[in-house]
Design a protein around this nucleic acid. Structure first.
Lengths: 209, 209
DNA sequence: ATTTAATGTATACAACTGTACGCTGAAATA
DNA sequence: TATTTCAGCGTACAGTTGTATACATTAAAT
């Protein structure tokens, strides 16, 4: 059976994407990758790259999208875990940390391009983060009676801190991982509790649980 | 009057450092600078660079150090402002935001190299952040009776959030700056209050102020 | 006054980059 | 079956890079 043209093209496209992810590491940022390098790793001629992507920026944005999707899928599973067992904060943070350790390249990409030189990249990563922030804000608002603004500010702080913990996790030894996770959990609890107290202070009447 | 050798060397060294800072921007990260480019901007021959720095990494570490010093000096001034007027959190955050807007290149450098490809850079930036964290933790611990660990975890969360607000400030319009600052202040208050409540919960007896 | 040492330069080279051009073979279409 | 389309390749070119080597100038040391 011979492959259709579209199928073969899709395969090559995947090879390029996978090659790029493979090249990312602690010592190698996306912006330091050259087109030729990616082509080499993908096993194609440099010029063939252009049959699939306009330039490296377009490939990069594709990687950010793919990475975001992968991360969101994982966090959706985390929510299932929450249903039957335990604390939202703990399960979420632990799930995220697992992701960072299992797919460090993806996390590297998101982490670095969030403050990278390309506006398009920064916006793309920011958009991925917004998904989390909004989902988390919804969740928070659903359980307590915050305004949406309050909930978002709270959610954003949490996402930033978890992201930061992920960044530290990349550099640390496996033994230190647990400590790092606990630190992040505690920081998130500070925020949850603090937001709780401060919003209660502003409200006329709220029954303490 | 002729210049002594050491004096002239120091002048050229400064030209290199200043040139490198000048080249940094939203669109230009340190790792994307070439040795030749810096030499060109500094007005010297490419090879002359080596008379002052082993390689680009050594220059970069020097920049991180200088940036850290500048930032710390500014924050020290902030503490004076706190003495006579108002909230610690508010003054600190506002001071930091001013720094970001006034010396964006320095902040760019710290922000990016914090998650960059060079371990030496990451460590250098991390060390700069530790200065702030420790100072803030001391301050926190001095006012309330936390353990040092608690105070540090709290301080770290605060520094991370302020840093993040700074990153957002780089991309935003001047009009949005105030809103951004207020958001960060609120986030820090969440943490302060949350830590306060959670540590009180653990203590046998504490008199509410 | 002579020698030494060091700052800065000019030239050169090999390695790598992005990408323009033209070609090939085979799948898709007519 | 004949024609068109298009993914992929090879060659080529101009530009940039880090840095090795050799040399000039001149302050500092002898």
């Amino acid at each position: 059976m011979t492959k259709s043209r579209a199928q073969q093209k899709e395969i090559t496209r995947r090879q390029i994407i996978d090659a790029a992810f493979r090249l990312l590491s602690l010592e190698r940022s996306y912006s330091s990758l050259s087109l030729r390098e990616v082509a080499r790793e993908a096993g194609i001629a440099p010029n063939s790259f252009y049959r699939h992507f306009e330039d490296m920026e377009e490939l990069g944005l594709t990687l950010v999208d793919e990475g975001g999707v992968a991360l969101r899928q994982l966090m959706r599973k985390a929510r299932q875990r929450i249903e039957d067992s335990g604390s939202v904060i703990q399960v979420s943070v632990e799930t995220f940390m697992e992701f960072v350790r299992n797919s460090p390249q993806v996390f590297h990409l998101l982490l670095r391009e969030r403050s990278g030189t390309s506006l398009a990249f920064r916006k793309a990563v920011s958009r991925e983060l917004q998904y989390f922030i909004v989902e988390l804000a919804d969740y928070i608002q659903h359980r307590q009676n915050y305004t949406m603004d309050e909930a978002k500010i709270q959610a954003e702080a949490m996402v930033i801190l978890v992201f930061n913990a992920g960044a530290e996790a990349l550099d640390c030894k496996p033994a230190e991982l647990k400590l790092l996770t606990e630190k992040a959990i505690l920081q998130l609890r500070y925020i949850a509790r603090g937001a709780d107290e401060l919003s209660r202070g502003r409200q006329k009447k709220t029954v303490r649980p």
